[in-house]
Amino acid sequence: MRAIAFLALTFFILIVLSVVLSITGKITPQTLQNALSSEEVQFAVSLSLKSAFVATLFALLVGVPSAYALARYHFRGKEVLDSLIDLPVVLPPLISGFGLLIFFGETEIGRFITEHIVRVVFTPCGIIVAQFFVATPFVIRTARAVFESIDSKYELVAQSLGSSRFESFLRVTLPMAKKGILAGAILAWARCMGEFGATLMLAGATKMRTETLPIAVFLNISVGNIELALAIAFIMLVIAILTIISIKFVASLR
């Protein structure tokens, strides 16, 4: 068994490494520097960072209270809600984006939002909506697990010491859950940075307008600019590695 197990592990690690090497192998310092100084790449990096930050923020604002509701309260239909939350994770992002596109473009509510609040379809705002949709389940999943691991008696004791429910949540449960929520937020952020399918459908792939890093890779490959696509891929690889390191770091925090 030991031999089979390690053989399987080695096999998969080799695949991962070959992907990493395929990207890094073709990169020279020169192409990387060219890419980093190109206006298009700078725009894509900046847009990706900004949109992922805002989308993660919204994901936290919505996801943390949702997770709390699922962790602390018992109500009818909880199982159904729970499955619905998984849908954005399981559904192909392209289909999620397609759904969002029809919702904002073709329905009454969607049109109302477009006319009175904000234009979502084929705009940078659409990027945030697409990323939010895909990333929020990650926040809910991780935060829920953290809340469930915290004995609700801490909150009750805090309330018996004079805190209101909301105050006991803010002063006791939330700080106790901080680490887990932060790890969830990093995961969600990484998901936002890599979001492609839903963004493509909802925000479109307009050069220098809705061009996030993954869209930039797509656009450059489609016009045959492999060198630039590889350089952007390399940037994303670095971001992915930094994400893994930061999650490990957060987990090691006391």
């Binding site: 801490y154 805090a158 805190s163 209101s164 006791v172 106790m176």
Partner: peptide
């Protein structure tokens, strides 16, 4: 509501782990 009763549950197992002893005592 619990916080309006003037009845306190005293439980050594439920000290708030993220706060110092001083902050725990001062909590309420």
């Amino acid at each position: 509501p619990i916080n309006e009763r003037k009845i306190v549950m005293c439980h050594g197992r439920y000290l708030f782990p993220h706060l110092s002893v001083e902050e725990n005592i001062g909590y309420g």
